[in-house]
Nucleic acid binder design. Structure first.
Length: 431
RNA sequence: UCCGGCGUAGCUCAAUGGCAGAGCGGGUGGCUGUUAACCACUAGGUUGUAGGUUCGAGUCCUACCGCCGGAGCCA
C-alpha cells in the first residue's frame, strides 16, 4: 500500500510509489500516453499514464478524466528535467472519485466579471492560489508582529449602535427593532481595551457603504488595528514602519514562489526597511503644488496627489499633521498648531495609495466633548468613550492597516478585489 | 451620485449600413514525451432589452438594464 502524500513533498519520495489525491488541472494526450496534471492544493505535478504499463481499465479511466475531475493516483515518483516541478509520477493505478462536468473556466483568457461570477472555482487557479497564500502570510506575519511584542488581541464588535466617525456611510441593519450598524473601525473600542491592557490590537472585517467603484475599494475589507497606551504620534509612526517592514520581509522570505507566479518585481520590495520618510502635511503640499498647481492648501489629498507624493520615494512615506478639519473628531490637535491634527497616513509606493491611517487620540475630556459637539454627534452614545478620559486618561495612539490594499501592493496586482477570497463590492454580492 | 468605456456562440473576440465568423472550451477520430500540446472532422446564435431611422441594422439614433474604472470618500 503506497503512502498518501502531498505533492509539495514529492522530492522526499524520489523512486518510491506514492498515492496522491486531488483534481485534474489539465490533460494532454498522445496516442498511448496520457499526461495528467494533478493538483492537490499544495502543488501541481504531471502524472504520466503509459498504455503499456497499466491495465486497460486504468488507461480508459485516464482517457475519461475531464478538467477538474477528482481522482486518486498511485505511481512512482521520478525525477525528470522536462517537468516544471522537477518530478513527475509514473502512474500505476488511477481511481476516479468524480467525473467533473464541463468546467466553465478554460485555459484561455476570461473577463473579470465572468471570473468573479465563478469565484468559487477561480480560486483553484494558480494566480489566485498565489494571492491568497500571500494574504495568509501577511495576516500571519501581522499577528506574529504584535503577539511577539506582547500586544493583547482584543476583538471588537461588528454590530455597533452608532457611527464611529459620523460622516461615513454605514450599513444599517434591523437589530430587534433597533437600528444597528456594521462597524467601520474597531478603534474606539480598541481605545477602551488599551486603557485596560496597555497595548492591544484587533483584527476583523470592517464595512463601508460608500458607493466607491475603484480598484482600491471594497464594501467589506479586513483591518488590523493596534492601539497603544502611553504612546505619542512619533512612537505610533515607529511602530507602523516596523510593522510594514515585517510584513514585506515576511512575504519575501516565506512566499517567494508565489511572488514569482505573480511576476512581482521583488527588487522594489527588498529596500522596504526603516526609516520610512516622514513628511509634514505642509511639505507634502509643497511637493504636490509643483505638479498640481491647482491644489488648495488645507484640502485633503486626492488619489492623484497621493501618487505624486509616493513617487518621490522608494519606500512607503508617512505624511503627518494633516489639517484637523479634514480628519476625524477623535484626533488630538497639534500643540504647535491647533489647526493641525496629530494624524498620519502611510502611502504605499507605486501608486497603491493609503495603506495605513492613524493618529494620536484626544485624551482631554473637555477637548473631546467639544469635538463631539462640533461634529453634532450624539453625546449620549459617546458617554462610555468620554469615560475613558475621565478615569485615568493617558496619551495614546494607534493606526489601522487595510489588509487588501497591503496585499495588492506587496503582490503587485492592480485591483484589491483579487486579494480577498470572496470580495464584496457595490455590485458584487455573489457568490 | 457624476464622468467615460463596453455589452455578438459556454469563454475571449472579429465582422466598411449589405450572406454572423475565428480561436479556445465541448463531442468524435488520430498520434509513445506533451508543456495554454498538436492535426482532422463536428455541434453550438432571439448580436443585453424596448423602441426608432433605413429597401436593408450586430453596425446609426433614443431610453432603459448590466458590467468595467475614474472622481468624490476612504484602508
Amino acid at each position: 500500500m503506497a503512502e498518501y502524500i502531498k505533492i509539495k513533498d514529492v522530492a522526499r519520495y524520489n523512486g518510491q510509489e506514492v498515492t496522491l489525491k486531488g483534481w485534474l488541472y489539465n490533460k494532454r494526450s498522445s496516442g498511448k500516453l496520457r499526461f495528467l496534471l494533478l493538483r492537490d492544493g499544495t502543488e501541481i505535478i504531471q502524472c504520466v499514464v503509459f498504455k503499456g504499463s497499466v491495465s486497460p481499465e486504468v488507461f480508459e479511466r485516464a482517457t475519461q478524466l475531464t478538467q477538474e475531475s477528482s481522482c486518486i493516483i498511485t505511481g512512482v515518483v521520478s525525477e525528470d528535467k522536462r517537468s516544471a516541478l522537477g518530478y513527475e509520477i509514473q502512474v500505476n493505478d488511477l481511481e476516479i472519485v468524480q467525473i467533473a462536468g464541463e468546467y466553465p473556466i478554460s485555459k484561455k483568457e476570461h473577463g473579470v466579471d465572468f471570473l468573479m461570477d465563478h469565484r468559487h472555482l477561480w480560486l483553484r487557479s494558480k494566480k489566485q492560489h498565489a494571492l491568497i497564500r500571500i494574504r495568509h502570510e501577511v495576516i500571519r506575519a501581522a499577528r506574529e508582529f504584535f503577539d511577539s511584542r506582547d500586544f493583547t488581541l482584543v476583538d471588537t464588535p461588528i454590530f455597533t449602535p452608532n457611527a464611529a466617525e459620523g460622516t461615513t456611510t454605514l450599513f444599517e441593519t434591523d437589530y430587534f427593532d433597533q437600528k444597528a450598524y456594521l462597524t467601520q473601525s474597531g478603534q474606539l473600542y480598541g481605545e477602551a481595551a488599551a486603557m485596560a491592557f496597555g497595548n492591544i490590537y484587533c483584527f476583523g472585517p470592517t464595512f463601508r457603504a460608500e458607493k466607491s467603484k475603484t480598484r482600491r475599494h471594497l464594501t467589506e475589507f479586513w483591518m488590523i488595528e493596534p492601539e497603544m497606551a502611553y504612546c505619542d504620534l512619533d512612537q505610533d509612526m515607529d511602530v507602523a514602519e516596523a510593522f510594514v517592514t515585517h510584513l514585506v520581509q515576511s512575504v519575501l522570505k516565506n512566499r517567494r514562489r508565489e511572488l514569482e507566479v505573480l511576476e512581482r518585481d521583488t527588487s522594489k520590495l527588498e529596500n522596504i526597511r526603516p526609516p520610512f520618510p516622514r513628511i509634514h502635511y505642509n511639505e507634502a503640499v509643497e511637493i504636490i503644488k509643483k505638479q498640481n498647481p491647482d491644489f488648495i492648501d488645507g484640502d485633503d489629498f486626492g488619489a492623484a496627489d497621493e501618487t505624486i507624493i509616493s513617487e518621490q520615494f522608494d519606500r512607503p512615506v508617512m505624511v503627518h499633521r494633516y489639517p484637523a478639519e479634514v480628519k476625524a473628531f477623535y484626533m488630538k490637535r497639534d500643540p504647535e498648531n491647533a489647526n493641525h491634527a496629530l494624524a498620519m497616513d502611510m502611502l504605499a509606493p507605486e501608486g497603491y495609495g493609503e495603506i495605513i491611517g492613524g493618529s494620536q487620540r484626544e485624551d482631554d475630556y473637555d477637548a473631546l466633548l467639544e469635538r463631539i459637539r462640533e461634529h453634532n454627534l450624539p453625546e449620549k452614545a459617546f458617554a462610555w468613550y468620554l469615560d475613558l478620559r475621565k478615569y485615568g486618561s493617558v496619551p495614546h495612539a494607534g493606526f489601522g492597516l487595510g489588509i487588501e490594499r497591503t496585499v495588492a501592493w506587496i503582490a503587485g496586482i492592480r485591483h484589491v478585489r483579487e486579494t480577498i477570497p470572496f470580495p464584496r463590492t457595490m455590485t458584487r454580492l455573489y457568490p
